[in-house]
Design a protein around this nucleic acid. Sequence first.
DNA 1: CGTCTGATTGATGTGATTCAACACGGGTGG
DNA 2: CCACCCGTGTTGAATCACATCAATCAGACG
Lengths: 245, 245
Amino acid sequence: MHTALPPIRTEPLRTACSACNLRELCLPLGLSSADMEKLDGLISTRRTVPRGESLFRANEPFHALYAVRTGFFKTCLSAEDGRVQVTGFQMAGELLGLDGIGSGNHTVDAQALEDSSVCVLPFSDLENLAREFGALQMQLHKIMSREIVRDHGVMMLLGSMRAEERVAAFLLNLTQRLQARGYSANEVVLRMTREEIGSYLGLKLETVSRTFSRFQDDGILDVKQRQITVKSPEALQRLVSTAAC
Amino acid sequence: MHTALPPIRTEPLRTACSACNLRELCLPLGLSSADMEKLDGLISTRRTVPRGESLFRANEPFHALYAVRTGFFKTCLSAEDGRVQVTGFQMAGELLGLDGIGSGNHTVDAQALEDSSVCVLPFSDLENLAREFGALQMQLHKIMSREIVRDHGVMMLLGSMRAEERVAAFLLNLTQRLQARGYSANEVVLRMTREEIGSYLGLKLETVSRTFSRFQDDGILDVKQRQITVKSPEALQRLVSTAAC
DNA sequence: CGTCTGATTGATGTGATTCAACACGGGTGG
DNA sequence: CCACCCGTGTTGAATCACATCAATCAGACG
């Protein structure tokens, strides 16, 4: 410990991909350190998004993908008639904006559910870099493919699961992703409202609330507002995997 | 007209991408003719899939994407507990297999609903070619992105639409895709059963059947088994867009 | 011509929604 | 510092849309 002057930059030194603690979860996964340095050069901008603000909105022109550094987002698809569907929740290391590539315009709103920061990945630069580095290209393709697979899972959930199973699957998915980021698998602080969970799961907020209460009665969860303690992950797992029987 | 000997090859000359009538709907979209010739070289194999057979199955290793040349497919996701979700129906010009890129294994079963044929696109070759031709890379990214957007639309459908709206949206989507391929927008021969439609839409087959009947009573459709005549596309459109009101 | 799969239709059941009342907690302003 | 308020969450009762169960029908096919 030294007693020298305080650092001149109050802002912390910009974390490079190569030094980012998310590199095993994010775009750089599988890249050599040489390739990763090239990727560092690409990320010239970062952006902070205060809670409640949008990172981008539907119909805005698409220019970049965004990698969540810190915080938590939701993506919403809006229908002409005003209905809104939450299509996903994104946490650190996950990519936002893939929906915009196809048409050149974003198709969903990405809103921060808590104060958040993202790395901006200008897409044409990313494509250029991907053409140079097969590993980056492959990783990008894998990420897009996994998003498709995730969506298929949600389709299964929405198409054929009952409320209890949906909520159980949602909680398991959330805890697993948090665990991969070094958090406890049993303690979750929900960043979203019951209504947002319901929208994602195709349920009304009352049904989500009731299901949480039932899980608490059954000793599976401890629910204190948004503070959830998973007392029996096994029970949740049983609910999703033996659902039809 | 000449009277010479019959052609030596009974098989018709292989259609190249550059000469394919699907090129405006398929991967080659937007490629220069020079690029398209390179793509021709990539497609060394074609495959026919008889009705009822699988093009690939979940958990099989992923090697290639498939472009539907003729016919009709469904993709199914199976849960451990035996439940099955139809995740999509694919027709001429559409790509199959994107789900397999992420893990290296297919995650769904792709089954032909009628005798079909596909172009086989070995994925590593495709990635190599995409690295050479920015236009091909861009087109591949767009196709994957559009699949994500489509999935989001299905999530909206499954999450917040009622049975009538789901069936109306399904029929509209089908007729629009058929129309883009030169078929009538009013006459549809369904290639799938009521049960498969129901699985896709998150409904039971009886509900699908009843909804068809109701549409017929309302004068919106003419239903004769799998032969559907859309008498009022406007009414269908109204159902999906003014649903919440 | 009988069999079989897929489709239709009706009667009944039920899980989720709707509507409504109330509770909680965090923030603001008197 | 407390009263009030507002967004959020919980809970109950009634309702409804879809599922379930069951019978019958229509074509396709051997």
